[in-house]
Nucleic acid binder design. Structure first.
Lengths: 160, 160
DNA sequence: CAGATTGTTCATAAAATAATGAACAGCCAG
DNA sequence: CTGGCTGTTCATTATTTTATGAACAATCTG
């Protein structure tokens, strides 16, 4: 296992670094997934640190995040005490993990907040109450739509 | 037009600040949209600065971003030299603007990068070539799927 | 045209986010 | 139990991102 990224590996890692950025995840998370994604063998923390030249802390933290939504799988390697990992390669699983862990909670707290807003609005008595009420209802509709889109998006990834 | 945020306004702004965060947009962009969203009247830069207590630079910059994907509309107010704005309230328009301006370009450059990777792979002659080839193909499939999902997501917002 | 008024830009400051690495906790092997 | 690995945590440092505000350009107004 050579400890430098080949040109090809660098490109692949770069793809995932950009994806990570789009998802508001740390750069290192994208790097880690990228390296695992094109590695035929499972890798341990030490391998990843050496390949990417990042610290042990970042590596551990990054893997924790990846595991949190199932983007990475642990693999047992006989005769080695260390933990090894591979990239989860089924898009559907990653998407649904991500949705459940990183997106749904936000939607839920948004739901709660809108409920609070509705009750604030009742106490309110400005001349614009009607307009504001319409806006809040609209916002609620958006929320609902977003919630409906998520499971659909997961299914959309079905065959992969 | 009072120059402080009511409790209700604060809550609404907060909702959009969180959404902005999820979309990797500056906090101020969420604040601006939020205030416009619950404002019955069009607002000018000065109004927004005062309401949100943010600088003129942030306000101008934030509105520029919002305009870039059609989240905000310019309104002419008779007898006033200043520019006035309202929040675009049709979700479908905002989504499709956002997709076209902020998402599609990333997908496209990703496409280009994958093409480059494919050519790098041809020069490559490791024993793992086959495995890597499979992964790159898979990645390409993901890319394609993402591209297909976007127009669908836009349509999903249809009635709003 | 001269003087205001309005909006944009951009160098700098401030704030938020991520990475580092040393300290620590757990665990196995002898 | 002791010593050596392995992985995690977290206070600090580094980096990146965002906000600020003064300088500027553009546009009206009288």
């Amino acid at each position: 296992m050579q400890s430098a990224l080949s040109e090809l590996e660098k490109e692949v890692v770069d793809v995932f670094v950009r994806i990570a950025g789009a998802l508001s995840l740390p750069r290192s998370v994208g790097e880690l997934y990228g390296v695992l994604f094109i590695s035929p063998q499972p890798m341990c923390i030490d391998d990843l640190m050496r390949k990417l030249k990042i610290s042990k802390g970042s590596t551990s933290q990054g893997l924790k995040i990846l595991r949190s939504f199932g983007a990475v799988n642990s693999v047992y390697v006989a005769g080695d005490r260390r933990d090894f990992f591979t990239a989860e390669a089924e898009l559907r699983r990653i998407v649904s993990g991500f949705v459940n862990e990183q997106v749904r909670p936000h939607l839920d707290s948004g739901q709660a907040r809108i409920a609070r807003i509705t009750s604030l609005l009742e106490e309110d008595s400005s001349e614009n109450k009607e307009f504001i009420a319409e806006r809040i209802e609209r916002l609620q509709g958006w929320q609902k739509r977003a919630g409906a889109l998520l499971p659909f998006a997961s299914n959309f990834m079905k065959p992969d």
